[in-house]
């Protein structure tokens, strides 16, 4: 019995050895198939003289300077003028919600607007410098829009109002502290014709 086992086991081992050997060969072969390109590299032919080198004319693609004449500021159609009668409205950080003082200010502004119904006003939304400029453009617009919506609920005709966001591009105070930031988180009212 034991010897029988021995025979069995030995035979198994032999099989295993053979299998191991075979497996290895197949494996290597397979990989050879997979990677043909890099074999023993040919020494790259050294171009002896000019002709064999790839000529590459370096031709700068002309990049035109801006056609300044055609676009300088003249396209700005509206002459903006700060409405001194209309007070600014201020906001908390990263917020477009109107505070109570803001609503009081807007009520005063609404009265003036209703009195001067021929005047068209653009509400400019501004942010402090801390946010990202893209996000602040969207936030500034929300600030302008919340002021406009409040004015409309107070009876100001919507066609008297428009909005624009400047994000953090036009700070009222160039400082870098909370006092400056608080002044910059604002809506301004600009009379346009």
């Amino acid at each position: 019995m034991r010897k029988g086992m021995a025979g069995l086991v030995t035979v198994l081992f032999c099989g295993a050895l053979l299998a191991g050997g075979c497996a290895k060969k197949e494996m290597v072969k397979g990989e050879e198939g997979v990677v043909p390109p890099v074999t023993t590299e040919k020494p790259s032919e050294t171009p002896p003289a000019k002709p064999s080198i790839k000529e590459e004319a370096v031709k700068e693609q002309p990049i035109k300077e801006a056609q300044a004449a055609t676009e300088t500021g003249k396209e700005q159609p509206v002459t903006a003028q700060a409405a001194t009668e209309l007070e600014k409205v201020f906001f908390d950080f990263d917020s477009f919600i109107l505070t109570q003082p803001s609503r009081d200010t807007l009520s005063k502004n609404a009265k003036w607007l209703l009195k001067n119904s021929q005047v068209k006003v653009q509400i400019e939304g501004h942010c402090d410098e801390r946010g990202s400029d893209e996000y602040n453009l969207a936030l500034g617009e929300k600030r302008a829009k919340s002021a406009m919506n409040y004015l409309v609920t107070l009876g100001v005709p919507a066609n008297q109002l428009s909005i624009i966001s400047y994000g953090k591009e036009k700070p009222a105070d160039p400082g870098h502290d909370e006092a400056a930031w608080a002044k910059n988180r604002r809506d301004e009212f600009v009379i346009i014709k």
Partner: peptide, 11 residues
Amino acid sequence: RELVAKRYSGK
């Protein structure tokens, strides 16, 4: 061994 060679002409 040489790996790459190029000639460029321009201004």
